[in-house]
Amino acid sequence: MFDAQSINLSLEILAVAILVTAFLIVSSRSLLFYVRLFSVQSFLLGLVAVVVATGFGEFHILVAAVLTIGVKAIAIPYVLNKIIDRIKVHKEIEFNLNITTSLLVCGLLVILADSVGKPIIDAQVMHALPVSKVLPESIAMMMIGLFIMLARKQAVSQIVGLLTLENGLFLSGLSITYGMPLIVEIGIFFDILVAALILGVFVFRINETFDTVSVDTLRRLKD
């Protein structure tokens, strides 16, 4: 069996790799690339779960890991790819905030998350789980996901933002309590899957109705 230190290290590296994928999402403007990156991200997240499961003997997380890879790394990207094909919008053109600034803001978010997370880890507010070292990364992921939803206009990017946020949530769950009880976990997965499907249908409908998938037009719905 591996020792705790090397498990820890590999967890941290995986968490940072997940962060890199989030940054690449922020830096790109191709919707297909978003989806591909999201898939990679979820796969890495699945690996984290596998490492936690095998490394600390919490085998119920393996189910979550399989679900993560199955649902988030394969099923949802597949659905999103279908939608992108159907609505024939491949590029994000307009932004609420341009990419350079977005990257800098995300950088600041990570710094913020780190400086918030570091004292929590140091003070050992939680039981000193070895996994909790990735807490700052998970907070950063949640904020970046939210930020993507703020900065982008395309409906697909909103979905990717939401999913990134959810990935961050999953990571933080893992880091604090070795994952939530299995039943809750499974519930969330189906929620996410259904949400992605419904959002996909929505996007498709919005596109049909308005000839665009920019969420700006949704403002018109209030009239």
Binding site: V16, L19, V20, F23, L24, S27, I99, T100, L103, L104, C106, G107, V110, I111, D114
Partner: peptide
């Protein structure tokens, strides 16, 4: 290109800060 380079810049900055 600057957007790509900005990724490098932000990642390197984060590396140092982390």
């Amino acid at each position: 290109v600057p957007e790509l380079l900005m990724v490098a810049f932000v990642l390197s900055l984060l590396a140092l800060i982390l």
